[in-house]
Design a protein around this nucleic acid. Structure first.
Lengths: 334, 334
DNA sequence: CTGTTAGCGCTTTCAA
DNA sequence: TTGAAAGCGCTAACAG
């Protein structure tokens, strides 16, 4: 049962193949009669154009490849979902793949997508700052980098981690906190640097002395050992009154530590998290967080990519999206 | 900067295009010398075969399409991640797409994938029992249905909801619970029916009377209103001592209700959940759950699909995967 | 406005 | 063992 091809449509409609093609794509000069006739035949026969042949000939696949570092991360899941929707509205299919935070997988996926001639790539890179290894691979395909700087070679949409962290800090400081612990993944990517800078700047702004002992760098695996938080909880001298957690995994580790130390949130200690999740929302007490604006992110990414795909000549644009504070129950006023 | 094609490789290696092709695919009769020479040239030139052209000619795309009903659901995220890994080991690329629980999107995605000539499809269908609308679309492409019965037309891998629910019930009953509330999405798909049947069978098995008032059907949107749980919590007469929650969303609703009713888990009321998640694990107290065995699921899906793709003649196989109980802190012994 | 023709990059007969 | 040539399904020149 071979699929019905444009050949069949043309034969049944009694026109040539090219006329059939034109009639269906409404391109070039075709009479209204022919269009109507051909389209009627096409639907009657259940004609489904072969996207592969079309891509091969026209050098346009009407597909974009989306690479995220970890598709099991619900945040990426939600982003992908929104992205799929907005791109499909513009007639692009999405092919999603997960690099699992592995650089060589990432490069392979870029090659895979290029060999399938995607019209564009959306790339949420691995936990590395350097994207040099990608730039050369990507060359020639419109690409938007997500949450990483593409220099002037690639477009990018970034989350404003500096602003987000400042919002969190100012919120805590306004509530009277002066001993604020910062728990963060230790990898040296730009977002982390931005956050640490924001942390320090806000301290200065509020004339609070900086205590390096309050900063806790987790290992790169994103798995945060609760012992680190325990140590902070029981540190000699002035203990922290608030924990600023950079990421859901770390938040979970901190909550576990607080729980096993039998402290109460927010009575004994306040907690705020950067990066919102179901978990923050559903936890008791619910956790005040800074949320990524998925809609804005996805909107910026797709519109930037679309304009780059439509007109190669426009340089790669970029955008920055702010985070917003979602106030819940986990922070006390001192 | 056009990509380097087989043409270039052949020219540089001083052989014909067909020889170059054969040398790279190690197919047919080619001398070892030629193979070595051609492959050396290919790597030197950085030749990347165009997957589209190859698929067009050979009618094999070496890609499989994965359709899930909601990619932002972390469970699906994890499944997809595992699936990607095992399929890529067999040389297949994965194209993931999300139907967002919409039947027409689902059908469109099947068409999209077929028009791109994927070699196989993995389908986690929408919340409907009938898959008739899919069978006709899918015809001709090896397909594995996930968590739904494909009849004898499509292969399938199912989760044993009956067994899972029985494990949960027996666990609660062994702990002395006799008033067990069941909170479930109300849609009439098979998994739900299986679970309700298991609930009732276990009651009978333990000679416990069935009280329909203890069953609470949520609306189909998966958003569970805490009021429903509140009502159960404050019902006149014998209140339930345990809540069996079918799904993370419902679990969250129940926990919120319990919290706002100021009852303690597990002291005042026990909670068990079918379907495990970060949330169950990280919640205080952590929630005893029945977990899907992602590895087993993914392994069965990919091996079934692979064998179907390799040999079209083998009928569509099927498998059933059991759930396992993860005992945590949320259930008390009465 | 429509048909004929030439490929897109590759694999695969079929001869040599 | 190799090369020439056909053709996958479609679009895009170019004639008519």
């Amino acid at each position: 049962m071979a699929a019905v091809s444009i050949h069949d449509v043309a034969r049944v409609a009694g026109v040539s193949i090219s006329t059939a093609s034109r009639a269906m794509n409404r391109a070039g000069r075709v009479s209204e009669d022919t269009v109507k006739n051909v389209q009627e035949v096409a639907t009657r026969l259940g004609y489904q154009p072969n996207a592969i042949a079309r891509a091969m000939r026209s050098k346009q696949s009407h597909a974009v490849g989306v690479i995220v570092s970890d598709i099991s991360n619900p945040f990426y899941g939600r982003l992908v979902k929104t992205l799929e929707r907005s791109l499909s509205e513009s007639g692009y299919a999405c092919f999603v793949a997960s690099s699992n935070n592995d650089i060589s997988t990432e490069v392979n996926l870029v090659r895979l997508f290029k060999s399938r001639e995607v019209d564009g790539i959306i790339l949420g890179p691995c936990q590395t700052d350097s994207i040099a290894h990608l730039v050369s691979e990507i060359k020639g395909t419109p690409t938007i980098l997500f949450d990483r700087d593409g220099g002037n070679a690639l477009g990018s949409v970034k989350v404003d981690h500096y602003q987000g962290t400042c919002s969190a800090m100012r919120y805590l400081i306004a509530k009277g906190h002066r001993r604020i612990a910062l728990l963060t993944p230790g990898s040296q990517i730009q977002p982390i640097k931005d956050r640490i800078r924001a942390y320090q700047d806000c301290l200065v702004e509020a004339s609070i002395g900086f205590d390096p002992g309050l900063i806790c760098l987790a290992d790169s695996s994103m798995n945060f050992p609760p012992e680190r938080a325990q140590a902070l909880l029981n540190m000699p001298g002035d203990r922290p009154t608030a924990f600023l957690c950079l990421g859901t995994k770390i938040l979970a580790g901190v909550l576990a530590a607080i729980r096993s130390a039998r402290r109460a949130i927010p009575k004994d200690v306040s907690v705020i998290s950067i990066g919102d999740s179901d978990f923050s929302e559903l936890h008791s007490p619910s956790i005040t967080s800074l949320a990524w604006d998925i809609k804005a992110l996805s909107g910026d990414i797709s519109s930037l990519l679309l304009s780059q795909m439509r007109d190669e000549s426009t340089g790669p644009g970029s955008a920055v999206v702010e985070m917003r504070l979602i106030e819940r129950e986990s922070c006390a006023t001192l």
